[in-house]
Design a protein around this nucleic acid. Sequence first.
DNA 1: AGCCAGGCACCGC
DNA 2: GCGGTGCATGGC
Length: 289
Amino acid sequence: MNSLNFNEEFMITVPDFDLKQSLECGQCFRYYNIGPNAYVIVANKRVIKVAHEQEQVIFSCDEAEFKAHWLHYFDLERDYGAIKQHLSNQDAYLKVAITEKQGVRLLQQDPWEMLISFILSQTKQIPHIKKLIEDLSLHYGTYIGHYQDQAFYAFPTPEQMESVTEAELRALKVGFRATYIVDAVQKVRNNLIDLETLRTLSNEDIKKQLKTIKGVGDKIADCVLLFAYSRYDVFPADVWIKRIIEHYYLLENSNLNKIQEFAKNYFGIYAGFAQQYLFYYGRDNKLGK
DNA sequence: AGCCAGGCACCGC
DNA sequence: GCGGTGCATGGC
């Protein structure tokens, strides 16, 4: 048993950043609230404790580790003030969402973890998605350490999931998503899809490849593009976004294709940021329900 | 109890 | 191409 003590501290002041909002806006799943504005986070095969007190963000690591891993993960070097200004000028609805969710940053996450996590996400609610990802990590991932009697495991790599069977996955209660996960593992392990090569391709080419995986359609592919490949002009369109866009912008009965088209034209190169502000705000306020 | 959840595949037209 | 339906499971 490896006890994590989180004794190190590195503090930083960051504008336009809120820890709770960035974790709970729905883009990531492996966070644990351990107190007011304090979380344990599993990412990059590491576990870290982060707390946000007034203006200070406190990371339980030294400066070198912060700069090597977490600065990038939390996207802390980007000028969100400029992005928010641009989007706020566009319309009043978005401005309200941005004002309430002013501290959201788009995390730089791992493509494989995003792919599997969002395959699991279909017709599930966030608490249950989190649990499925936990169970996958527990069964197939590498043990990292304990903190307060809880064991933390890294998200399993494609190699670690190589021999996973549909029956095993169904025993973990992933349901009909089991065949999708097996297909994703096989395509990545057989090099039919190389997730690192995808980084260098166009949005369209990445999507085309991701959608060859069973159970991956436009929405899940777009989540991987936005949350793992930093494609900020992409606008994942799910049931919440559909409700919000119909409520605010289109009024008429719509469909997901029309919403994609509208978002691309209307929000432009910052569509992905707009999506997160609107999604989080809309879900939090049960807009359109 | 029955409906719905960060979708998608499959089917009919 | 477009809309309808089934899919596992859990929460309300």
